[in-house]
Design a protein around this nucleic acid. Structure first.
Lengths: 346, 346
DNA sequence: CCGTTGCGTGGAAGCGCTCCCACGAACCGG
DNA sequence: CCGGTTCGTGGGAGCGCTTCCACGCAACGG
């Protein structure tokens, strides 16, 4: 008489295990495993037996068990430190997500969205990343105060930043558009069309992209011998663009050119300019930054600096996957040249 | 002489295991585990010894190992079948994500974003969900053809739908706004203000929300004894709203009221109406649906039906977590009443 | 003819964790 | 003072998988 030794429920019913596949296929568990994972060193006979068994049983490998031994999870995190509402609705974020999923889809890797809540410390995020719940991390929209780049470098998790991080930029890989060159080019375009009083609406001072664009504007202004005194900061939202434009036009009513660090802010600025009765581009020429859809829909359509977010996200993701596969490789930087897209506003 | 039997690298160096914690704390692995997980049946002495050990070693439990035995992953999926670009930039999606993360943050549960690529079959998604990589699924923005609800009910994965699914609505839980009532109320508001020729821009016919809103419009029109003949369909984007408005005004130049199934489409419609020289609301009153930010920024500001997405997402997430904890509970439906927000456009 | 190679295979050892169970100690009321 | 309860504890099994290793076998060159 067989001793009944089952002490727990017999594993969630209906979920076949590798053992059962092996039994049905008439091979050992080891062979079944090999057959399922690429089929190296497996005879054609065994392979097809396993394939059949997998199909008839509806077998799906248990990812936890697999991950326990392989030490890989086949998932990466997209980290958004302190996501204000802005992040979600920002076309930049949308494009990023699109680019990332496109690449991940090719390799059956999943995306874990890690959103630190506003105000919450990054401790939770770091703890999650530390315990290797994911194979790597893609960090977007980071701010000055979170020293995420350094922390991630410390724990040795493969990671790639979207946009140059404030600190630790030499220790982590990142993909960025050449913000300085982009905004310089934008400014030069205004100079070339004859503007002499050019102001700028910059982004939040705690983001490198914003600072770099501001630097680009300054460079171009200085090269042209123009005074770089008309600066106002926004936070990349449309509303902040309106406010900044209003303040700027009040302080410098003589502006004939406006370099704005994002299209969304530029859209806000255009609205204010229309309100004030300034014709664009005749009275004042405006150039934006991003070209992620908004620029085409403003009136007048916005001349802007295009950053190819989708492509950048793709590059970043591929870079990350490479680093996951090859953790000891040197952190790489990819700097993508932006292009000026001429429309009606300048 | 000790036999050297290490056959593999000694576990990824630096990652302490529960064994080491137990050793340092001077207790057994079982006790250490108990202390770490809530501390039931653990003496104060043991508890603090373990706590200290955890801290000094920087121990973080290996989620794969834990998940292997508990059969839980402490993560849920947010499933977006066929995400066109629209989904990402849609404030609806943004709000949903915000609501979901808020709830998940309370319980240290992670969010896996499952985006079926456009055109790709849902097979991959289903496979992923089948193998219990996540504890549950929240499905948003599903379309008619993916029989996701039924599939998920079949595999028995706890899931909650955002919006009533086309089929299988009786087998899965969902949270929805009362679209019929909402659009009926919107239409009635136009009737009340004296409109007699009321058209509608409906959403895509393969989404229940769109169909329900259309039904609400029809109901109100019929109750008021008005002809429900001016219907045009869009896909919830601003561009489609423009096109639909154009078509509608061409076919029915006498319209004095317009019920639009989303604010984004309404924004497009407003633009077209301005272009055609129709004054809103004097010549034609317009009412939208959503109230997720866009409505406040159109000109004139949009009277609209507010659906509290954040709250809905929260409710849906809580519902999902309940079902994860209590898989045998009956699938619940939460129908949230929308409210009409009166602004300038009607 | 026999070592050598290479290939396909299965046995078995874990991966790091949870949790069942048995065990001893402390505590209780009778 | 003793049987019964409660409590804290550790041993150990096992979750489902990958992978090391040893083994048998056919093919092959000397």
């Amino acid at each position: 008489m067989a001793r009944v030794t089952s002490q727990r429920p017999p594993a969630s019913v209906g979920q076949p295990t590798l053992d059962e596949v092996a039994r049905v296929a008439g091979v050992s568990r080891a062979t079944a495993s090999r057959a399922i994972n690429g089929g190296q060193r497996v005879s054609a006979r065994a392979q097809s037996a396993v394939d059949t068994a997998v199909r008839t049983l509806g077998y799906v490998p248990n990812p936890a068990a697999r991950s326990l031994v392989t030490r890989r999870t086949d998932s990466i995190a997209v980290v958004v430190p302190e996501p204000d509402d802005r992040v979600f609705s920002d076309p930049f974020f949308a494009g990023t997500l699109r680019g990332v999923t496109r690449v991940l889809g090719e390799r059956d890797i999943q995306l874990v969205l890690l959103l630190a809540r506003p105000g919450a410390s990054t401790a939770r995020t770091l703890r999650y990343l530390t315990n290797r719940h994911v194979d790597g991390a893609l960090v977007v929209s980071h701010h000055r105060d979170d020293r995420l780049a350094e922390h991630l470098a410390d724990i040795g998790l493969p990671c790639v930043f979207g946009g140059r991080p404030w600190t630790g930029g030499d220790r982590v890989a990142y993909v960025d558009v050449d913000n300085v060159a982009g905004e310089r080019e934008a400014t030069e375009a205004l100079v070339a069309r004859g503007c002499t009083r050019i102001g700028t609406i910059a982004g939040p001072a705690d983001m490198t992209a914003a600072e770099d664009r501001l630097a680009g504007w300054r460079q171009a202004m200085s090269s042209a011998g123009l005074a770089a005194d008309a600066v106002e900061h926004g936070d990349f939202t449309e509303a902040s663009g309106e406010a900044a434009a209003r303040a700027l036009m009040e302080r410098h009513p003589d502006l004939d050119g406006l370099v704005v660090a994002s299209d969304l802010m530029a859209a806000g600025a255009l609205r204010v300019l229309a309100e004030l009765g300034r014709r664009v581009p005749d009275d004042i020429a405006v150039v934006g930054f991003d070209d992620l859809g908004v620029a085409e829909r403003t009136s007048p359509a916005l001349t802007t600096v295009r950053q190819p977010v989708d492509e950048m996200a793709e590059r970043a993701t591929r870079l990350l996957l490479e680093r996951v596969d090859e953790p000891d490789s040197r952190p790489m930087r990819v700097i993508i040249p932006p292009t000026l897209v001429r429309r009606a506003s300048a």
